[in-house]
Design a protein around this nucleic acid. Sequence first.
DNA 1: GAATCACTTGGTCATTTGGCCAAGCGTGAC
DNA 2: GTCACGCTTGGCCAAATGACCAAGTGATTC
Lengths: 115, 115
Amino acid sequence: MNRRERRRLELRADVIKALAHASRLYIVEQLARQEHCVCELADGIGADLSTVSRHLGVLKAAGIIEGERRGKNVVYRLRTPCVLNFFGCIERVLAESAQATARVRCAPAMQSTST
Amino acid sequence: MNRRERRRLELRADVIKALAHASRLYIVEQLARQEHCVCELADGIGADLSTVSRHLGVLKAAGIIEGERRGKNVVYRLRTPCVLNFFGCIERVLAESAQATARVRCAPAMQSTST
DNA sequence: GAATCACTTGGTCATTTGGCCAAGCGTGAC
DNA sequence: GTCACGCTTGGCCAAATGACCAAGTGATTC
């Protein structure tokens, strides 16, 4: 992995990092339905307004959402809806993990024939 | 966001977190081509073997890859190749961000008509 | 069974992240 | 202008993350 490739992967990782938090996933889901002001999202999340504002800042910096002042409010909307496609795959990963766990639970002596 | 929904989003976030690192993205890309032992991946990344082993542990815990001992080696492979679909969208996000940056650079007085 | 190779795990440290409170800033209402 | 409202940002702290080295474990070799 040379310097150039590392940089490329770091840029990708930054976008993924922006999505790697429950509250930010909630925000993305809500904005997928319709645009929202900060206060509405903070309400839904149940965290301090400042905390939510920072989460929005992270998503915005990553280029996933964009915000616009409208009167007193700042209204955010999804800028790259393709991120919604991730969730199907994520669910598949989780489902397979759950299956594997179940398999282990039901057949603990799968590999080691004895003991 | 009730307790149940938070839990659901946290599970999703855990999978995404596992992908949110340049070295781990490198690993996923390599394993998409073919399976590899830890030493090969460590070589490619250029980090300590222990560090790479932990990265593999994170991906495995998330259910994205799986490993199998084969003689002296432990060989890892991709378990849920659908994660590769993420990258197209990520690149689009990055490309749009780059465009936005360029726009700002070329027209700094876009919104505020004067000043 | 001792040595060696491939990997994992414990210990430690520096850095990053996420949370809240408090203070600041921009906008609209009065 | 000044007040209130909505949001952002600075300050701070606790917890999580990522890195390395060193020690431990599993498997092959001799």
